[in-house]
């Protein structure tokens, strides 16, 4: 039920932001207290890459930025 979460390296973050022409604030959020965030030890400001299993696309990539709560 829980998809794969991983911290996105800094260079990759830049690339993603550029690709979608957005700022970090526009990325969907994930709370610092989220069990998965704790598990991969991400800090606020980190961007997490989530590889979801999708019924329509097979697999899809989603990004969330860690925010403190």
């Amino acid at each position: 039920m829980v998809p794969k979460h991983e911290i996105l390296p800094k260079e990759e973050v830049e690339r993603v932001l550029e690709k979608y022409n957005i700022t970090k604030g526009q990325i969907p959020k994930i709370l610092e207290s989220d069990p998965m965030v704790k598990k991969i030890k991400a800090k606020p400001g980190d961007v997490i890459k989530i590889t979801r299993k999708s019924k329509t696309a097979g697999e899809s990539i989603y990004y969330r930025v860690v925010v403190s709560d």
Partner: peptide
């Protein structure tokens, strides 16, 4: 633990995180 589920979405959010809650 991979297949067991509950219909309490907020509990899933608390225990497994937002992504699991979204799936739920």
């Amino acid at each position: 633990i991979t297949r067991t589920k509950t219909n309490d979405i907020l509990e899933i959010h608390k225990v497994l995180g937002v992504e699991a809650a979204r799936n739920a």
